[in-house]
Every structure is written in C-alpha cells, then in structure tokens.
Amino acid sequence: MQRLRVRYAKRGRLRFTSHRDISRAVERAVRRAGIPVAYSAGFSPHPKISYAGAAPTGVASEAEYLEIGVTTPCDPEQVRFGLDESLPPGLDVLDVVEAGPGGLADRLEVSDWEVRLPGADRELAEVAAEKFLAAGTVEVERLTKKGMRRFDAREAVLGLTVSEGTDRTAAQVHGQPCVILRMVVRHMTPAVRPDDVLTGLRLVADFAPPVPPEVTRLAQGPLDARTGALADPLDLDRDNTRGGEAGPASEHVAG
C-alpha cells in the first residue's frame, strides 16, 4: 500500500475548525477528489487517514500533517491538486510526497509558532520574554481532559523573540499594530502550547495581552543538529523517493 504524506494549512476563519471537523472534511474531500483511499477491515471500515499532532481549535497553521493510505499508486502532485480543490478554501493542501521509511510523527520534534498580540505593549513583552528565558523553570497550570495539570513551560521553549507588526484577521484591510512573539517549542509530554508560554509570561512578569492572541503554527519538523534550524519533515521522503527539490519549511502564506 502506497502512503502519501500531506502538508496542509488551516487559515483565516477555518482556524476555528477542531481536529474532528478537519478529519470529517478530509474524508469527504478524499471521496470527492476520487483518491483511492484504503479502508480498514471490520464491522465499520474507516478510511486510512492518520493525523500527526493537530493544532488546537482557534489556532491557525501553515504546517499540519496527515498521511493517506491508497490502494493504487498515485501521483503526489495530482493528489495535492485534487485534494486542495475538494477542500473548502482555508484548508489548503501545500505539499504531498510519497512516504519513505520511518514514521512522520517522529520527525515532528519542534514547532515554530507566531503569536500576534493586538494592543499589547512591546517593551513589557520584551521584558517578560527575557525574564522567562532567564528562568530555570516556569510552572504553569492548564485544565486538560484529565483535570488540572501542572507542568514546566520553560524547558520546551528553545527560542522566544519579540517584534512588531499588524494583526491580520480575515476581513480587515488595515490591521491594528500588534506585538508579535515567535516561539520555537519542542514537542514534549505534556505538550507545551503557545498559551502555556503566555501563561508563563504572565506569571514571571505580569504580562497580560488585552485581547485573545492570534496564534499560527508556521512550521514543524525535526531540528537540524548542526544549524539548530527547523527542517522540512518531508525532505527525508523526498530524498528517498525522488531525490527532488526540498520545500521551504517555513513558507508563509497569509490567509
């Protein structure tokens, strides 16, 4: 069975889709596109589509990944086009490769997050980021399905920088000025999410943005041991099957 690895984006208003919403939409799109998806055996057969670490509801992403098992070999570029055509605008298919050896989930070691904070104070944000990075551990609490959990939000954060820009919600032509945080966060258990880092900033420096943040995952993938940069997780598959060109890991298209 051929397996295809798909990178897709969740943009604009479709960032409000939950993981379950996306999986229903993808199943339907696969059917509409006529992709010969494989089904599991048994009483209620399910299409063989698996997802790696989905971004939370309300968080946009330029780098979500899924894997489709197909019964007959498909051209990845045709699948990319067909699947993208069949998904609603805002769920956009960016890249499809034939899977090589090795699991995809294992390669998704780190995420690069962008957090836009309209109306926040840049200086306060910088002070908070410095204090956060200077701290050895920053214990935060979050309500999970298993109840309130307490964990360290500091260790997972490999990088945290502050800059400025505008917010860019779907319907606005001119965005408001906002503070932009970039966070490079290692995937750990329990997962440290951008909102946990924000909680950490509040705890260490009383930094609290006035309105809900706009969060986008820009990239996820393995960390290059030599350069410390984020690499495209599909490059390994590309090297293996085609030796073809590498896709830019942090290509960023505004929704």
């Binding site: 208003r13 479709l14 409000f16 509801t57 309300g58 605008p89 779907a170 319907a171 809900p212």
Partner: peptide, 23 residues
C-alpha cells in the same frame, strides 16, 4: 461584521458553526 465576530469566537463553544465557508 466578521472582524467584530472573530474577536468573540475564541471565547465560545464550537466557534466553527459561526464562520460559514461550507462547501
């Protein structure tokens, strides 16, 4: 009015039901 609604959506249950964009 979407930009005004959008600011409220992170605070509600199942925000996807309010955004439209259906196939």
């Amino acid at each position: 009015i979407f930009h005004r609604l959008e600011a409220l959506l992170p605070k509600v249950q199942k925000p996807i039901q309010y955004v439209g964009g259906e196939l």
